Amino acid sequence: MRPAFSRPLPVRQRGLSLIELLVAMAIGLIVTLAVTSVITIGEGKRRTTTSTNDMDQAGAYAAYLLDRAVRSAGSSLAQSTLPTDRGVFGCKLNAASLLPASAFPAPFAKNFKSANDLRVAPVLIAKNQSDAGSDVLVVMGGDAVAGGVPRGLTDPGSATTLSMDNTVGISTGDLVLVSQNGTADCLIEQISGTSAKVLTLGGTYYTAGKSTSLQGLAASTSTYVTPLGNPANGNVEFQFFGVGDNRTLYGYDLLQIGGITSAQALADGVIEMHALYGLDTNGDGILDAWADPGATGYDIATVMATTATIRQIVAVRIALVLRSASKERDTVSASSITLFSDAVDASKKSLAQTVKLTGTDDLNYRYRVVDFTVPLRNMLLLP
């Protein structure tokens, strides 16, 4: 018989059974898989959102740069056509030894015209002539203190001097364009000194001329001097814009201001840039038609040599195609992108262009089209 004061023996502690352990592991795996799936989906959405935002910001920045450049195109040049032509539009550009002897740097090296062929115009579009096969945009202009008003020579000058009735508003270091109606060449020159009625030429941008000499132009009172601005102030613009092989929009300073001899990257993720000319065909100051820069009469060689066509161009429509940096697992884009679907030429023919996405995994990226029109305000001021 057990004593009344004795305690019961403790129950032995037991662990999980195999079935309980397997059930717990299964539940844990299910929870882990669910959490991992949520994290993976969330991370994918985050990368897509970030990549899309970066693409949108790059597009907005590229559009801002191009708008700012094109909007001022023709400044200091447009007045050289009033009231009579001073030989600026369409003249062959000479700018000391700064222009390359053969090809321009990438992305303007493979197809774009050589420096020997380049002529003066507010805006030029070279269709499909960048190294990546997109259009090249050429913008020229200046912002001189003297307002870009051309001045005629009053007395014969020399290979280093220009004589005129006054030199007000023109300072040492300024650039001027020396031209003459009926003469093919025009010369960019830099002022190295001034007096009341004489400009002395010299410095980095001095050129004696090629087929047309400065001395020959300086000797004629039918020659005009158009102030362009001062490169030290950043108000002289002779720029190229184009897309390179690495999906980047580049800009190139034709005058190499600041000693920069190569093209500079402006915006990432740009795979195509295409543009149209906006025309005022009847001279009423209103855009009434578009022109494809590849059409007959509107290729770059014809436009820059035809003053009447240059004067008709009052706007430029630009379309940028941007690609996201983040590759998606699945197909997320169509096989082609249509640009300028609503644009028509003077005969009402559609000017829509198609960009085909044929590369490996192209359809696994997202794309944006930034389409905008820039008026050439200096050309719109012409009567």
Rank of each mutant, 00 (worst) to 15 (best):
N128I: 06
P105F: 01
A95K: 02
L175A: 14
P122I: 12
L137F: 02
L99R: 06
D143C: 00
F89V: 10
S130W: 01
K113H: 09
A95Y: 04
L137T: 02
N166S: 13
A159N: 15
R86V: 02
R151F: 07
V120R: 00
S130N: 05
S80W: 00
V136N: 01
L93H: 02
P107T: 14
A95M: 12
L175Q: 08
T161Y: 10
G157P: 07
A121H: 00
L187C: 04
D85S: 13
S179G: 07
T154K: 14
A121L: 10
T167S: 12
S171V: 07
G141P: 02
S114Q: 15
R151D: 06
P150N: 01
S171H: 11
G90D: 06
L118H: 09
G148I: 03
N94E: 10
G90L: 06
L118W: 13
Q180S: 10
D135S: 12
L177R: 00
S80L: 02
A132E: 13
N111F: 15
T183A: 10
D165C: 09
A121K: 09
S97M: 07
A115E: 13
D185K: 04
A115M: 15
N128Q: 13
V149R: 03
L124H: 03
A106P: 09
F89D: 01
D131C: 09
G141C: 11
C91S: 11
F89S: 01
Q79F: 15
S171T: 07
L187S: 01
N181Q: 04
V145I: 07
T172I: 11
L137N: 00
A126Q: 07
P150Y: 02
L177G: 00
F112Y: 15
T183K: 09
I125D: 05
N94L: 07
T183S: 06
V120G: 00
S76F: 08
A109L: 08
A146K: 03
A106N: 05
P122T: 11
D143E: 12
S114H: 11
A159Q: 15
L175Y: 10
S130R: 02
A146D: 04
K113Y: 14
A184K: 06
N166M: 06
S102N: 09
S76A: 10
K110H: 09
S97L: 05
L153N: 03
Q79R: 14
P150T: 01
I170Y: 00
S158L: 10
V138L: 08
I125N: 03
L98C: 02
V168W: 04
T81L: 15
I188M: 06
P107H: 12
T167A: 12
V138N: 01
P100M: 09
S163L: 06
S158W: 08
N181I: 02
G148S: 03
S80M: 04
G133N: 02
